[in-house]
Simulated scan of single mutants.
Amino acid sequence: MGAELVTRIPAMGQVYAKAVKTLGRKGKNAVLPSTVLVYREAAADPAKLDEFRHAVGAPANGVLPSLYVHSLVFPLAMSLMLRDDFPLPLLGMIHLSNQVQVNQPLAEDEVFDVEVSSENLQAHAKGATCDLVVRIVVAGVDRMQLRSTFLAKGVELPGAAAPKVVHEDFQPPQRTAAWKLDAGTGRRWAAVAGDYNPIHLCAMSAKVLGMPRAIAHGIYLAARALSGIEPAAGDYSWRIEFKTPVVLPASVDLAFTRTQTGYSVNAWNPRKAKPHFELTLQQG
């Protein structure tokens, strides 16, 4: 596994402008690149941090929300998918889950290094999945790991059998919160986070990529759910699994449940009683 030092984190718009060239990828070369992209001395942008907090209701508590860090550095992870040796198409990727481990939250003014890699290329019932992994390092110490799992629909991996997917029955719990998301939610979040994936922007661009209308960003949904429960100190971890897309405009019902070690959050479509996501947060 070779490290490749990069001198800047690209803008997400630049990434998507180059993503069209990946549309022809069909998974024939079923090997992920072994390259690790490394960026030294990243830091928060105070203005963009304020925008992020305002957009999701996150507190100004002196530390960086884990998903602000994700939004700041993820264009570097996406640029890994632009490489000629990456086997899956970038456009149309579906966000399935995130797993985040925080060993100690980053202070607002802290400088950190970023290491990006890809792993776990696997067959899926609807295509192929892989993980993009981001390590956040300060003075040689791991402070955070952010793992995102994506699905490339319709891509077949030669010789790989897709595991069977078992869908559990969902019974909506007692609602404790509700969101109203209008049709412009994806465009506003794109302006904050820089994620201009066409699947989130408008009905026309989303339909080209197989969706009935634009869908909400998974990171926006996760960041909004975490805004009132993410710890400001100590070590913690959280995981979100996306069940069905939030097709915009949308009403979303939620249940925030306190557990012995943290929180459990469920979100669902109140009209169809179908789950949108399940998030669990554990401290210690």
Results as ranks from 00 to 15, higher is better:
L221H: 00
V38D: 07
P10H: 01
L151M: 08
P158M: 06
S251L: 12
V246D: 08
Q14G: 13
R175C: 03
V31L: 09
L88S: 01
R147S: 06
D169G: 10
A30D: 06
L121D: 00
F170T: 11
V73H: 06
N61Q: 10
A223W: 08
E108F: 01
H217V: 09
P212L: 03
Q122K: 13
V155Y: 02
G92L: 01
T7S: 10
K18C: 07
K126T: 11
A178P: 14
S71W: 08
Q14C: 00
Q283H: 09
L279Q: 13
G184H: 14
S34Q: 09
L146D: 02
A162N: 07
V31P: 01
I94C: 01
I136Y: 10
L32D: 02
G210Y: 10
A191I: 07
H54Q: 15
M211D: 00
A55M: 13
V137I: 12
A225T: 10
K26R: 11
A125E: 13
V134G: 02
A19E: 00
A19W: 08
A223T: 15
E230N: 15
I240C: 00
M211N: 15
R175L: 04
Q174R: 15
D84V: 15
L151R: 12
P249N: 07
D113V: 01
Q171R: 14
T257D: 07
L146E: 00
A44G: 03
M78E: 08
Y220C: 04
Y39N: 04
R258M: 13
R213K: 12
K243F: 04
L157Q: 04
L5Y: 08
G27K: 04
L248Y: 09
L82V: 15
M211W: 09
P158W: 08
T176F: 03
A58Q: 06
A216H: 06
T261W: 05
L248D: 05
